[in-house]
Amino acid sequence: MNLYEIKNLVKVYGEKENKVHALNGVSINIPRGKFVVVLGASGSGKSTLLNILGGMDTPTEGEIFFDGENISKHTQSKLTKFRKENIGYVFQSYNLLPNLTALENVEFSTEIGKLPKDGAKNALTMVGLFERKDHYPAELSGGEQQRISIARAIAKKPKVLLCDEPTGALDYKTGIMILNVLCDINKKQSTSIILITHSQDIAKIADVVIKMRSGKIIDVFENPAPQSPNEVEW
């Protein structure tokens, strides 16, 4: 069974003359356990798609099935539960809570998911930042903050990790490091990863690439030989 089955998804923002079609009839199946990259330029609809996949937003029309369950008609409380149980987010601007230390940011995620606190420590170790656990976000570099953000996302053992341009705010070297962490998670934990980017080069590491333009999918292809992040350059 596919992780996601998306049928004719439409998302319209605004009303009357101000209507903007962010998604315009998107249909696709996303396989489980794969590293999927959604590729598109700014305004192509990739972030909207990611938000709807993660239950952060609802479609105007169409259906999304996650593990066979139609989530497009979910109420806000059901979507909250869905996010809590299934989704891990990694944002471009990290979005760590500034008043919490690195460990507390990760623990918050396990606390919401009612999981053991050890998970948080393990996740921090996995991203190689356990020794920085008592630091506040403002005391960490961008790369470190993004690794904490990844640790926060994986600590609750989500079925899928949704990454919104996770290297967008980072320098090349740090970006490679982050992509390595994500690939590791995908391989070692078999966690599905959906990453959105505008970089053709980053798409080379994906198992599946979905190309978008003007709210529509224009191409979908499987990468016969995904590259290691270390081989990628941008």
Binding site: G54, S77, T80, K84, E85, I87, Y89, L97
Partner: peptide, 14 residues
């Protein structure tokens, strides 16, 4: 506002 968004995204109910 953003912090509320993050917490909501993490699955904490309204």
């Amino acid at each position: 506002r953003k912090q509320i968004g993050i917490i909501k995204a993490m699955g904490l109910s309204d």
